[in-house]
């Protein structure tokens, strides 16, 4: 079923909407949830919470693209759960990705006094725009979806060493862009 029809079902308050969303985006939501939550039960609960959140937000929301909207919802719920469960402290992939992001700041560097997340986000989006399709996939999987090396390997067919070297190069390039724009000083 296409996204437009699913949204129509939500607007009609037809519970089939949830069923169809689960059918189309269930795997994606579980994938995102599993990247943030160590427990399979927690991930499953997160996915169910996402359906509830969608039921309550559509309408009035009429998202386009629906997949990004659902992904953002799932991710936010997963983050809330992982914080509530102290999953951050247990290490794992989310911590690894955070450390990688923080590695953009080399010794002695800091964020600008006038730093704004939104402005930094714009620089990151401009950077992503310039990437090749495969680089973009690896970058977004890692830094938005918080995917592990193994998961990126399965999705792209690249070797682990290639993924690691590609990410390292991309981070170095991004750090330069952020420096150029005065985000990192």
């Amino acid at each position: 079923m296409n996204d437009k029809r699913i949204i129509e079902l939500f607007f009609a308050r037809d519970e089939e909407a949830i069923k169809e969303t689960e059918k189309k985006y269930g795997k994606l939501c579980r994938y995102i949830a599993q990247n943030f939550l160590a427990s399979r039960e927690d991930a499953e609960e997160c996915v169910n919470d996402t359906w509830l959140a969608l039921w309550n937000s559509i309408p009035p929301d009429e998202p386009d693209p629906l997949s990004a909207y659902i992904s953002a919802r799932t991710k936010n719920i997963a983050i809330s759960k992982s914080r509530a469960n102290n999953a951050w402290k247990r290490g794992g992939n989310v911590q690894t990705v955070s450390d990688e992001i923080l590695s953009l700041l080399s010794d002695g560097q800091t964020l600008s006094e006038y730093y704004e997340s939104r402005l930094a986000g714009k620089v990151i989006n401009d950077f992503i725009e310039k990437l090749s399709k495969s680089e973009r996939k690896v970058f977004v999987l890692r830094y938005w979806y918080r995917a592990s090396d193994k998961s990126i390997m399965e999705e792209t067919g690249f070797s682990q060493s290639k993924i690691k070297s590609m990410l390292a190069r991309l981070r170095a390039r991004l750090a330069k862009e952020l420096e150029k724009e005065g985000i990192i000083v």
Binding site: P65, A72, I101, L104, S117, I124
Partner: peptide, 18 residues
């Protein structure tokens, strides 16, 4: 806040990859 910046990734890229 630097980590937060990555949550500003454009939805079109999230959809493309997802």
């Amino acid at each position: 806040r630097l980590i937060e910046a990555f949550d500003y990734i454009d939805p079109k890229y999230i959809a493309e990859v997802g």
